[in-house]
């Protein structure tokens, strides 16, 4: 019973984590925001590979 409840909790947490991953991707891909003053440009990044 306890493990069954825990399984339900972990399932709920997994859904939240998947939602957060979706939110992350959505925030990244929404309409480009204005870059803050002083923000480093992408060119100083170590790399940008897949």
């Amino acid at each position: 019973m306890r493990y069954s409840i825990m399984l339900q909790i972990v399932t709920g947490m997994t859904i939240i984590l998947l939602g957060a991953a979706g939110l992350f991707a959505w925030l990244q891909n929404r309409t480009p925001a204005v870059k803050p003053i002083g923000a480093p440009s992408a060119s100083i990044a170590i790399g940008s590979q897949v």
Partner: peptide, 18 residues
């Protein structure tokens, strides 16, 4: 997400988040 690199498309960024 602070000072992020350029977006790569929803699904690619979703996979990166995972």
């Amino acid at each position: 997400l602070l000072y992020p690199p350029p977006a790569q498309g929803f699904w690619i960024d979703f996979s990166v988040a995972l």
